[in-house]
Design a protein around this nucleic acid. Sequence first.
DNA 1: GCAGCAAATGATATCGATATCAAGATATCG
DNA 2: CGATATCTTGATATCGATATCATTTGCTGC
Lengths: 319, 319
Amino acid sequence: MADLAKLAGVSKITVSRALSDSPLVNRETRERIQDLAREQGYKLNVSARNLRLRRSHTVAVIVEMKPSNDRTMFDPYPLMLLGGISQELTAAGYSVLLTTRQGASAAAVQAADGMILLGQGVRQDAVRRFDKLGLPMVVWGAQGDHDDHVVVGSDNRQGGRAVAAHFIGLGRRNPVFVGNPGHPEIFERLSGFVDALAEHGVKPLLIRRDEFTLASGMDAVQSLAARHVTFDALFACSDLLAMGAVRALQELGRRVPRDVSVVGYDDMPLAASFQPPLSSVRQDWQEGGSLLARKMLAMIHDEAAQSEVLPVSLIVRAT
Amino acid sequence: MADLAKLAGVSKITVSRALSDSPLVNRETRERIQDLAREQGYKLNVSARNLRLRRSHTVAVIVEMKPSNDRTMFDPYPLMLLGGISQELTAAGYSVLLTTRQGASAAAVQAADGMILLGQGVRQDAVRRFDKLGLPMVVWGAQGDHDDHVVVGSDNRQGGRAVAAHFIGLGRRNPVFVGNPGHPEIFERLSGFVDALAEHGVKPLLIRRDEFTLASGMDAVQSLAARHVTFDALFACSDLLAMGAVRALQELGRRVPRDVSVVGYDDMPLAASFQPPLSSVRQDWQEGGSLLARKMLAMIHDEAAQSEVLPVSLIVRAT
DNA sequence: GCAGCAAATGATATCGATATCAAGATATCG
DNA sequence: CGATATCTTGATATCGATATCATTTGCTGC
């Protein structure tokens, strides 16, 4: 910047002002300096600016990337969320610092202006640990009762209710839920499902399955069959479980959706091209990421930010 | 740091040295200062350090996150790559700055010590654009002939050869390849496949399909059937295509693998639980990410770094 | 007893930007 | 014409760390 100043015959501070489009400098001078900077390939030194401004213009995003039976790792969703976050923050001039939980103690993370937590659903303890850092924090997931941080998530309860309403509308009276209610988001789905069914005097059966895989879905249905349970509808908390269930049902000679209605969750791309095309509950991940980022920015600017749930939509296809 | 110095009754510089484990300070003093820092919850100011050291200790990772028919967005693979990268760089004290191509002009990205490009396979022009920044750069993908940057990727050619050998071993003489050879990595798969088959006097048929979906795979097989093409083996360059193909074959009354052998690519988690369990070529994404990061670090430290391909393995299952 | 050396610590300058306050130039007004 | 307001520019200090060179202290060896 000093070099530019010399070249332009002005002082450093004028260059600084010109480059940040300050109205304090004459327009002519400003444009002259901006052109010069471009010619000379000048690059602002971010560290210097951040030092002086006492902020980092950076948001740390902490993602769970360890392998697990849970879906966090193998599904595309974290990436979609990341996409939304990245787009929104970048547009606002912020950088996205990506870390795993293990790397979260790095100096750069602690220096961030805020942090966004993804895929920490099952580990509330981890969330609390980060709470202590005193940074603005936004978490993706299910709303807790006594959280002192902002939570953004999709409306899992509404998802459950929508599926229940769908089943009731089809005249189903013996529904089954397959999934892992130990996971807060999934507990919400189950609880919305149960509540809405209860309004019609229907009580679903719960089959607990921790792995969200096709095999696990098949296994769930097979175990129902082995126990001679009668059921006419199945709500799986992941599309893979649902597909496994459909497959197993077919093998058992039960027709979908004539004998049993099946609905999955997440509406992954595969769902639409599954045979038969799978009905599923869709969340808008991109929008979710975007909202996370906007909440974050608001908090950084000392504006109030509230937790928020995003609507979901039931996509009814063939099952 | 000045505060710590006052508390400890030493000078700032001694504190600085103590905290960076410099042997220049007495061990007793060092430990005393480190304890004090911990007590006081001292956080190093990264901007200040980076300013003084004239480096950012940051690597920009540029990911393609726009929706597309290609697999980059919906598959978990970039995330796995990210996991490997993140782990390795964090361990080395570097931060990962995540950006989309659109955000790559941000000041923070330009200030990075290096950049890693993911999922830019189809857009070689983009790669060249970044080349001009003069930063150390590592790209994930297929080796180009005249690239002046380091490329890390899995051995797509070997993947193709392995599938060819597998088919030949099974006595198949009329194989088909399904995919989009316009994509450099996939072109490599095809070319390894073709070459290895040629050694046995076999020439495969190419069915071009740009979408990597189940529906597209079904469609490919249906179009083969409509044209009365005889084939006894099918190599699809994605698992979804392969699954679609298997499904279509079954619908046409052809048995897999008795009548037709099918192999996919990527060995996605779904492949193992597909019915029948799908044979597929597996790449080690985590290791790939890790290697990308190590190359990057080497370049940053002015060591020579060469392009490298990672071995793949053919996982033979039921198809 | 003193030169010579090693170990430990400190004073100062510096990285590259911006905030603050001061000041010169120009315009406006009664 | 003088005084005040407005526009434009600059001098200086500062953000928080580290590199360099200087200094102090204690010890070794002859």
